[in-house]
């Protein structure tokens, strides 16, 4: 008689399996190509601000299905405070106008249409304004509750993951920057692993024990492993030339050029 194997799952795993979640695959193909998969971890860093790319990614992710967007839900841990709602609204309006123009072949200036679509987008955006270390760690632990309550969340963003690093250092011994990031990734991974969500975080470029270029940093991984990341994206602003992003995945590395026009990223 063949043995029957039983697989147990927790209530959270069951909920995550049964709940309908919007996938965000191919939502930003210029960087993620066919990805990112639910469960992936993405790192964005740069010497200058990462807000332009983060803002662009958030708005693209919120674009409604009717305009060929993923209409995904997002939770943002706003620890940096620079990613403002006004900025996201302005950017969303620009994107909506363009999409409406493309879908109807004529420019859309109807503010009612744009505002109702904008409202739909904003309903899928959840923001946590965080101002201190205790609030940061407590909110991360509370993420399980947030993700259970809003089971359609597909993307969780930390802008930035490293905002409270210096506040946490004591006089005796400072944690190495890489170890600090890994510790936080371990904590976040432990909480989100059953929820099938993509996690994206930003950090300043200097926040790395190794000052190596992107190709010499720790490799990216195909599947989600503890403390490991799947995409590493570096933003480089060039005063004399075009700006660019260096993207590194488990099997390739490539570069994309961009300009910023009216707050929006224009890929070249």
């Amino acid at each position: 008689m063949a043995s029957i194997k039983c697989k147990m799952e927790s209530g959270i795993q069951l909920l995550a399996r049964l709940s309908k979640k919007t996938g965000i695959e191919r939502f930003y193909p210029i960087i993620f190509e066919s990805g990112p998969k639910l469960g992936d971890f993405i790192e964005i860093y740069g010497e200058g601000s990462t807000t332009c790319l983060l803002g662009d990614l958030i708005c693209e992710c919120l674009i409604p299905n009717d305009l060929n967007g993923p209409e995904a839900s997002i939770i943002v841990f706003n620890t940096d405070g620079k990613l403002t709602l006004d900025y996201l609204i302005n950017l969303s309006k620009i994107k909506l106008s363009k999409r409406l123009k493309n879908s109807t072949n004529k420019p859309c200036h109807d503010s009612k249409v744009i505002n109702s679509l904008l409202n739909l987008m904003l309903k899928n955006l959840f923001i946590l304004d965080i101002y201190n270390t205790t609030q940061f760690y407590t909110s991360i632990q509370n993420l399980e509750f947030f993700l259970t309550k809003y089971s359609n969340v597909s993307l969780c963003i930390f802008d930035t993951l490293t905002a409270f690093y210096w506040d946490e250092q004591n006089l005796q011994k400072a944690t190495k920057m890489d170890s600090y990031v890994k510790k936080l990734l371990r904590i976040v991974q432990k909480i989100v692993k059953d929820f099938k969500i993509t996690v994206l975080y930003s950090r300043p470029e200097y926040f790395s024990t190794s000052k190596e270029s992107i190709e010499n940093l720790e490799p990216c991984y195909e599947n989600s492993e503890s403390e490991q990341i799947n995409y590493r994206i570096q933003i480089v602003y060039n005063e004399k030339d075009v700006n660019l992003v260096n993207v590194r995945t488990y099997n390739k590395q490539f570069q994309k050029k961009f300009h910023i026009f009216n707050d929006e990223i224009v890929w070249l």
């Binding site: 939770i75 709602l85 006004d86 996201l88 609204i89 904008l118 409202n119 987008m121 904003l122 309903k123 899928n124 955006l125 959840f126 923001i127 946590l128 304004d129 965080i130 205790t134 609030q135 407590t138 909110s139 632990q141 509370n142 509750f145 947030f146 809003y150």
Partner: peptide, 20 residues
């Protein structure tokens, strides 16, 4: 109780927009 006292509140973008 700890979550209630110390965790940040999750605010919806649409609510934030109205407040703003």
């Amino acid at each position: 109780e700890i979550f209630k006292k110390h965790s940040a509140h999750l605010i919806n973008g649409a609510t934030l927009f109205i407040n703003s």
